[in-house]
């Protein structure tokens, strides 16, 4: 409660008359225009509320009808229009042609990176590193279905075992134990042999027993020397890259009851230009073949 206004001895300024525990407040009036600036901001906000959506209520759109989503869509449309000439060229070209042209390549790498992050990274990892358990690395030099531009594009477009495209890549490895083709000890022996191809040998006798079993049961798809067969998507077994684990037990488990990987066909989902960019990008991750 203001009581008594005094003149402060030191500054010659009036006090407001407020006093708290002996402390008195000087009255140094604010310039009036400052107050008017505040009124102006209030007036501005009122105009804003009328013109633009300001309340989280359905229908409170403001008289201009401006909608943030539409503004974004306009920006996106403008960006698409800017990109259209480049995308048209990429749509018409083959991945090889794109890779050979520095401008197209730079554009495809940038676009491919985004498309990969949006569509592929969920399974194959942000950098195409893949994951154990059926998600192949795209950055290494081992390909199940082929690592040329054409093979990569084919895989992207038609998918693998997804049942979405007539031209999809498909094959099936028998369930050797579940289907009664091999017994469990036999599978263990084959697994020992296969593991030895990748360089780990700890049971020479089992390897010896597994070798003929491999020739009878596996070589037709995976090859005499376990070099694999990309026509049927049979992975190479004589290298250090294992999709489902490379130790003897993991291999045995897989032979007994294989799990076949599935990849969707992107042909119906992505624009051909996007798929071309993806092919160029994936090819450049490290493992691209000619």
């Amino acid at each position: 409660m203001p009581t008594k206004i005094e003149k402060d001895a030191l500054t010659g300024t009036d006090t407001t008359g407020h006093e708290w525990d002996g402390l008195k407040e000087l009255n140094t009036p604010l310039p009036k225009w400052w107050l008017y600036v505040m009124y102006a901001t209030i007036a501005f906000s009122l105009v804003w509320v009328i013109l633009y959506p300001a309340f989280p209520i359905r229908g409170a759109t403001g008289v201009t009808g401006w909608i943030a989503r539409e503004a974004v869509m306009q920006d996106v449309a403008a960006a698409n229009e800017r990109m259209a000439p480049m995308l048209n060229r990429i749509r018409e070209a083959t991945p090889q042609q794109i890779a050979a042209d520095p401008d197209l390549r730079a554009f495809a790498m940038a676009g491919g990176r985004i498309a990969f992050a949006n569509n592929c990274a969920g399974c194959h990892g942000a950098g195409g590193q893949g994951a154990q358990g059926g998600f192949p690395s795209l950055a290494d030099d081992d390909w199940i279905w082929g690592g040329s531009y054409d093979a990569i594009l084919q895989t992207i477009r038609h998918g693998i075992r997804a049942g979405e495209s007539d031209e999809e890549r498909t094959s099936m490895m028998p369930r050797f134990v579940a289907d009664g083709v091999l017994t469990v000890p036999q599978v263990n022996d084959v697994a020992a042999y296969v593991a030895s191809l990748g360089g780990s040998t700890d049971d020479a006798a089992a390897v010896e027993r597994g070798k003929p079993l491999y020739a009878d049961n596996c070589a037709s798809c995976h090859g005499e020397n376990a070099e694999g067969n990309r026509d049927v998507g049979a992975p190479r077994l004589n290298d250090r890259i294992w999709l489902h684990g490379g130790d003897r037990h993991a291999i045995a488990r897989f032979i007994a009851n294989p799990r076949m990987g599935v990849m969707p066909a992107w042909g119906g989902r992505l624009d051909p230009a996007t798929m071309n960019m993806l092919a160029v990008y994936v090819h450049a991750l490290g493992g691209g073949e000619n």
């Binding site: 990892g125 942000a126 950098g127 195409g128 590193q129 690395s137 950055a139 290494d140 030099d141 081992d142 360089g199 190479r236 290298d239 250090r240 890259i241 991750l285 490290g286």
Partner: peptide, 18 residues
Amino acid sequence: RDRAPLYVRLADGGVRNA
């Protein structure tokens, strides 16, 4: 330097960085 993957194991047992 590529951070994902930190390194790539190759078919012959070599290691590659990108």
